[in-house]
Amino acid sequence: MALSPSTRPPLADEVTAKLRAMVHSGEWPLNQRIPSETELIAGLGVSRGTLREAVKALAHSGILEVRRGDGTYVRATSEISGAARRMYQDHTDQHILEVRLGLDTQAARLAARNATADDVAELRALLTARDQAWKGGDLEAWARADWGFHERVAQASANPLLHELYASFGTVFHQDLLAQQGRPGFDGLPAEGHSVLLQAIEQHDEEAAVATVNRNLNSCAEWLSS
């Protein structure tokens, strides 16, 4: 009797999917080291070779980064953000800003259309945290909260693909914020694109939301060219 081919995916593919899910769910946070190889082998019940094949696949996609002698770290939350992170290294700040402009304006428009009361409350809390961090001189916390606000706007758009694409800018934008704050005259608490945007989202005013994003990013473009 002829044997029918197995439809079960290779074990390494199953392990890859499990590891990817741990990253995507937030169980393994961005920029943090994942459990050791020994722990994962025991927890997953697989061989060292199978685990290494899965880790290699996720490292190739940009989700994980293997640091010899130090461990393996989460570098992106998905294949999309992993690929984008690599691509940004080959493009100028101006090119990145121009792409962000398109995503930001659409995120703002959709957030003004779809945001819930919970979205608005979380956005307000992030702006409060940003303001407190800036006034307290905690620049890392300020940059995290500022980026968190923009990403939360993208999430409030109710378009998960747009949110995922936007989130891929995280590392680049965070580093850019920290670099900009050292320049003379930099305003760490601009109303445009932040408190004005939140007001437009809360009022479900799509055109006002887009307008304040444009004014904010045009100001950023002037900083880059000065």
Rank of each mutant, 00 (worst) to 15 (best):
A54P: 04
A54S: 14
K56Y: 08
K56H: 08
A57L: 10
A57W: 01
A57H: 05
A59Q: 10
A59T: 11
S61C: 04
G62H: 03
I63P: 01
L64V: 03
E65A: 10
V66L: 08
R67W: 14
R67A: 06
G69T: 05
G69I: 11
G71Y: 13
G71Q: 06
G71D: 11
T72A: 10
Y73L: 02
V74C: 07
R75N: 02
A76M: 08
T77D: 11
T77W: 13
T77K: 12
S78Y: 08
S78H: 06
S78I: 09
S78V: 05
E79K: 03
I80R: 03
I80M: 11
I80W: 05
S81E: 14
G82L: 02
G82V: 02
A83C: 02
R85E: 12
M87H: 10
Y88K: 09
Q89W: 14
Q89E: 15
D90T: 13
D90W: 15
H91L: 15
H91I: 15
T92H: 09
T92K: 04
T92N: 05
D93K: 10
H95R: 07
H95Q: 13
L97Q: 11
L97Y: 06
E98Q: 14
V99R: 12
R100V: 00
R100T: 00
R100E: 11
R100D: 02
L101H: 08
L101W: 12
L103T: 05
D104F: 14
T105M: 15
T105F: 08
A107G: 01
R109W: 11
R109D: 04
L110W: 14
L110G: 00
L110E: 07
A112I: 03
